[in-house]
Write a protein that binds this DNA or RNA. Structure first.
Lengths: 226, 226
DNA sequence: ACCTGAACACCGTTCAAGT
DNA sequence: ACCTGAACACCGTTCAAGT
């Protein structure tokens, strides 16, 4: 008994022991395979073959669990970016990384616009903001610039995530945009002429390209600040 | 009896009769005074002196109720903009209108990033997008431009709304930013140098001005598309 | 120290029954 | 046609009791 305790304290934890990492991992699996609404403490406890209350020993509450899951996904995406890359390229690839992460895990999009100080948000701010110096943006203007870029990403993230939450689970981003376009077409053309015109473009465009075009637009604006 | 029916049919509805408008109005009151979490069908029914189920005769579900409440607030803000205004000024004042609406009603910020096709979103797209033509932006580029502007607004809306949801109800936007700045200062400066530098600026800046600076940054980018 | 699972205090939504 | 309110099927979270 004494020996076992010594062993586990040295970190060779039993495979079946609960830990925050194992809980977050199981949460991500549920979120990815069954969607946001399927993540309940009961479902999570069942998957981990434990009681619902046990989870609270490792995680304060559901918010912390979601923030931890989101941070894990986002951290993975941002560290992929080559550190030596040209700053403008680095920003583009980080933005695209977050975009793709939200495509693969829509719940990430929802969570990002839920807690301003969560680790994932801070990571994104640091990753993108940290390249502005090298881009020649003066210190005083850097906050405005990172705010424009990151809030654009978060705004889009929220919209896609909402679509994924509301539409059937197998709907992809293109089908989602098709749904939006259809709804726009049903509006009164006299009252919504602009939205009607956009509906035509929305149906058959590459939204990843579209997303990058927005980033580039903001980067042009940032260039002028220099 | 026959006479009364005739009267009510002509639209002179009894003051105490339930209607979608009355329900939405009561919902907005609860949301504004007691916060997002206080809006339950039970609380709403109590305020309207009726049963919870009665609400479902006029409103499909809670999503529709929130979308209707949000649309009412946003519609009020956007129609305030003078129709003859210079397009760039019109865009700025619409953006600011939405920003102020979210300040006054944080739940609007949360709801805007929850349903991509809700009336309020379509209104904002039309209001802002409709001015791009006059700004000389070619048709093909208009979608990218409106997307950059509106997603920036929505992203920021989501962050502020999240802050308002998580902090005590009497916290204003400035105090909220102070909280964020404090959390940023607690991070490891070696790992988050950029965020640390921004924390100093965040504490004492005018966030309304900051918001407009972001809009202007994007407008500069849009100018280059012409 | 860590886990169990029943219990608490809620939710949104439905629906038989009323008027 | 419209309203009532009990009932259903859930939630997140707590906590006494176990090991």
């Amino acid at each position: 008994m004494v020996l076992m305790r010594a062993r586990t304290q040295r970190g060779e934890r039993r495979t079946d022991a609960l830990s925050k990492e194992r809980i977050v991992e199981a949460a991500i699996e549920i979120l990815d395979t069954e969607g946001e609404s399927a993540l309940t403490f009961r479902a999570l406890a069942a998957r981990l073959a434990t009681g619902a209350g046990a989870i609270y020993w490792h995680v304060a509450n559901k918010d912390e669990l979601l923030a931890a899951a989101t941070d894990q996904v986002v951290a993975g995406v941002l560290t992929e970016v080559v550190s030596g890359a040209e700053p403008r390229d680095a920003i583009r690839s980080m933005a695209l990384g977050v975009f793709d992460a939200i495509d693969a895990h829509p719940w990430v999009g929802a969570q990002l616009s839920r807690e301003p100080w969560q680790p994932a948000i801070v990571r994104i701010l640091e990753g993108i903001g940290g390249r502005l110096e090298a881009l020649g943006v003066p210190q005083k203007a850097q906050f405005n610039c990172v705010s424009a870029l990151v809030n654009y990403i978060l705004g889009l993230a929220g919209q896609y995530a909402a679509g994924a939450r509301l539409l059937p689970r197998d709907t992809d981003r293109t089908a989602f945009l098709g749904t939006v376009a259809t709804r726009w077409t049903q509006l009164d053309p006299a009252e919504y002429p602009f939205v009607h015109r956009m509906a035509a473009q929305l149906a058959d465009h590459d939204d990843r390209e579209q997303f990058l075009a927005g980033i580039d637009l903001i980067l042009v604006g940032i260039r002028s600040v220099r």
